[in-house]
Design a protein around this nucleic acid. Structure first.
Lengths: 63, 63
DNA sequence: ACAAATTGTCAAGTATATATTACATTTTGT
DNA sequence: ACAAAATGTAATATATACTTGACAATTTGT
């Protein structure tokens, strides 16, 4: 299932997928796949994303 | 770095590493490695662990 | 309407999360 | 003190997270 909270948080910081990808050190396709819900990122990547977007794990990844 | 909060939460439910492993559907060595801080689990596994231990992501995996 | 930027998606490769087996060490119960 | 259970740890194997490159489709700005 899509991660719309991530998409919204990214929009809230006015970052493109590519900009977020660069900020956390992964490829754009990886960010795309996570938003799309295609796969199952590692916790370290989730934490890195949260820090860039000023959110917590619960806010972006808890159900 | 070790995940002592996970270890404590597991102890609080009186579960062995093996029992937790079985409850979330991974091997005992995987739980051991996560507690030891050896690697970087996927978010889905973290969520499964949290549910068994009645904790949230922030409580067990946020820094 | 057009161009530029962003996003969606596919294929093939690499890195690493996780499994399995096995054994040594430590902890717990009696 | 002893046995049983729990934990630490290593080697090899497999599944999958993530990369790179490329192109199509969509969105945004002028």
């Amino acid at each position: 299932m899509k991660n719309l909270r991530l998409k919204a948080a990214r929009a809230g910081k006015d970052l493109s997928q590519e900009a977020l990808a660069k900020a956390v050190g992964v490829s754009r396709q990886t960010i795309n796949a996570i938003e799309k819900g295609d796969y199952n990122p590692t916790i370290n990547l989730c934490i890195a994303i949260c820090k860039v977007l000023d959110k917590t794990l619960d806010e972006l990844f808890w159900e």
